[in-house]
Design a protein around this nucleic acid. Sequence first.
DNA 1: TTCATTTAGTTCACGTTATAGACTAAATAT
DNA 2: ATATTTAGTCTATAACGTGAACTAAATGAA
Lengths: 387, 387
Amino acid sequence: MTQAVRHDSMRARNLEVVLGAVSRGGPLTRAALAELTGLTKSTVSKLVGDLVDAGLLAETGPARAGERGRPGVEVVLSGARVASLGLEINVDYLAVRVLDLTGGVRFAARRERDNRASRPKKVLGELHALASEALTETHRLGLEVAGAVLAVSGPVGDGVLFSAPNLGWQDVRPADLLRLPVPVELDNEANLAALGELWFGDGERDFLYVSGEVGIGAGLVVNGSLFSGARGLAGELGHVVVAPEGPACRCGGRGCLETFAGQEALLAAGQAGSVPALLAALEHGDEPALEACAAAGRALGVALTSAVNLLDLDRIVLGGVFTQLYPWLSGPVSEVLSARLGGLRGAPPVLSASRLGGDAATLGAAGRVVHRVLADPAPFLARVQEA
Amino acid sequence: MTQAVRHDSMRARNLEVVLGAVSRGGPLTRAALAELTGLTKSTVSKLVGDLVDAGLLAETGPARAGERGRPGVEVVLSGARVASLGLEINVDYLAVRVLDLTGGVRFAARRERDNRASRPKKVLGELHALASEALTETHRLGLEVAGAVLAVSGPVGDGVLFSAPNLGWQDVRPADLLRLPVPVELDNEANLAALGELWFGDGERDFLYVSGEVGIGAGLVVNGSLFSGARGLAGELGHVVVAPEGPACRCGGRGCLETFAGQEALLAAGQAGSVPALLAALEHGDEPALEACAAAGRALGVALTSAVNLLDLDRIVLGGVFTQLYPWLSGPVSEVLSARLGGLRGAPPVLSASRLGGDAATLGAAGRVVHRVLADPAPFLARVQEA
DNA sequence: TTCATTTAGTTCACGTTATAGACTAAATAT
DNA sequence: ATATTTAGTCTATAACGTGAACTAAATGAA
């Protein structure tokens, strides 16, 4: 239900509006903010004052416009108070990243490690060490950690990782094993990487991010926000049917995209033992590797055709392993999309490789906390009340 | 951007909250509303008073609870002031429906007509006549028409019907040809029927409504609101790929669902000249008709498997022609869904036939206007200011 | 140099809205 | 009859944004 508005929530909302405008619109003077938000100069002055006092906004020097009249003082987001922690468990590395409110990276670390070989407790112990380092450093910088988000590859719900095809895990509660002094939220890697591309990529507000790993996931961003379905399990692109009579899939079905373009299928068809080996073979021009990628690309094109028709996509970003394979995948994928979508729809969707590569997930994870603070800064003004 | 809140918009929002609570929660006393919304009794009293004055709420008799204490006076939505107009152009009929704010039907009419044979101008002229009747009747009842929505089968954007496979139309602006004294909005039949099921069906808040006509569309409802994609073209279930090397489709692709379960394919395979003929053959137990339905059902099952994986569906409603074919379709569809989704996901989605049948679209269309009034009742209080 | 002009930002009396609690109203229980 | 309980109204008050007056700080013209 829509919530009732009271005086305090009116204020909270207007703080959010001002902070959001600064966050999107770069440095802005109070006068510009008043114009932008429709609030009066006096109201904006009060709100900005509180946000500056709280350490969420900072005044930069006077804006030298060279024009007539008193120059305004511009304010920007301040990275001096709040920080957020992004965590990721991937097949072959662990990663942490600390962002401040401006989106600036304050700490980042990555530990290469074959996590396939380890049980959850072991891996999360390792991640705990890495995260503790990050928290120590954040504390040293005088920053307050507003929260943490952990990215894992696989379907997630209510703090539980139901299954992780990459790792062979099932029904794990990572936050419980991680035991960090800040609350840790869990989300799907594809969803978080999609948010990473949204907030730190090239500014597009509508796209499908495809994460190619052992499984194939996807995160859909529509009008600047994530679509996750009724129970948060949307985006299982890997089990979209590509050929109804195709190979059996671990999901119980047949001919799912994963059986053609999942990492296992790809390596088997390409006669390579690992992704680096496959890449080397591709660079070298080996026929089986090239044909494996072409076939995977065509299958991906078919699955994406279905996705475009269902979801109305005009932009698709390939991430995960697909980012590295992009030069060999993009041709077949585009051909299939153009052939199948050219008719009724206008142009086929624009295809591109992820610009953030392996950083997308931790950026999205930490970014989610930053955006939560931006969306509700009121709790951080509490100390003003006390003074 | 999120809008700034001022005193008037705070009031507008709280009016919406109260009205929404009554609309969902049946008859409610002021005291119950205060509890429900978190507002104080005095605030609720003022808001309810204004809404009653505006003719949007009405007091029913005192609530006889038989319990201690003064019985509260219950208020309900009032159907005495605002009405909305829902319009539909289908292949073989035109329909109009007038709803009041309570969702009660105040007028309904349907004109059987083979619209395939006619040009847009002719059909919309006919619809104009029908709509005028509806408006006259509405006026006679002393109701104010808050708006009209027209349902058409096919992709729609910005007031333009891009193509209508049912009718053979292309790039039509129905509102311009319709020339009604109220603004007419245009939307996709599948989307509006989905909203009809949401508001007038069995109260589920998450489902996919599948509309089987000449083309096959779908409307996705997530958490009580419609998902329409970046440009409003989501839900083209008919062009989800079922067999990559299947028959050529009018969209330029191959093996789309439409080539297996669209009306043309269905009638051809079933050796029937029309849907009634096909139904008769099915009732009679004719082999080609039964097999045609089974094959269409299996194809639909495959397409829905992809949809479930992408959209995280737990409930699917079959509408349009599929409602009538449901007894013969549901078996094959369910079997395919169970076989393909049993593994990773828990239970397969629940399948059902539309309960509203052909009324879903006009109900959704008119309901959309009703819900717009409920979501922003402030404009209807204007006369209170003037008094 | 001086002063009008222009734009930025602050201050303060005021209006709108929700709040809290006293008060009235209308029922049941004793 | 009277206490008790719950519903709804009334009134003084507080929170917040508004608008106009005011101060501040720049440019430009005389």
